[in-house]
Amino acid sequence: MSTTATEPAEGPSKVDLGAQGGGTGEIPSFDVTLKVRRYLPETSEDAYWDEWTVTMYGTDRVLDALHKVKWDIDGTLSFRRSCAHGVCGSDAMRINGRNRLACKTLLKDLDLSKPILVEPIKGLPVEKDLIVDMDPFFQSYREIMPFLINKGPEPTKERLQSAEERERFDDTTKCILCAACTSSCPVFWTDGQYFGPAAIVNAHRFIFDSRDDAGDMRLEILNDKEGVWRCRTTFNCSEACPRGIQVTKAIAEVKQAVLAGSF
């Protein structure tokens, strides 16, 4: 038994806050125009654009603007959302041509002199408005065996893992399966069979986990013609990831592991 390396610092009982106790003043309001790609298959076979202008406030996000439209103007506007702060992965969509989470995209950070373009993510069948069929995405995820496989005897307590070993795959544990990366990938758009970045990220999470014994099986799966070699390193996935995962780097590490025949 021992204590951990870093003992938290103890802060003082009283500090001079200076200007920080005062806050930042009034919350500004502003008008934004949303231009949303609509698809209502029960009404029409064709997709079309719809546009609304709404008044929003300082810390509001694109999700708040979509809610404002849905709740106050047009209840048929359909999109998925749940946690509303970037951890559940429900509301990935194309905002001004980039894949982002609507709940993590602050309106004030966008160019509000033009309409904000909102479209469903690409490469997955659109079901209604911003809702796509996620099943193909989750099917690719399932195929890389996204669970720890340890062939040794079950320990009575925890398996040991050094902090360095734990750090090795930390980045790829952050994935929330929102599909922003996979649906930003030009290869995935043209070839729906490609596993896509998210499945490779989740394979990486286990391949580089010191406790896992099935890396070779996953590498064999990803050495397939629809596997890592389809990646063209366009970096769209890394730019799209709302969790800041270095997706392209993770794919490159998997490629190297395939080439090395070990990891």
Partner: peptide, 16 residues
């Protein structure tokens, strides 16, 4: 942990 949860670790490699 046995299911694979990546807990933070102590210097000895135990769950922190």
């Amino acid at each position: 942990e046995k299911m694979g949860l990546p807990f933070n670790r102590t210097p000895e490699g135990r769950i922190d």
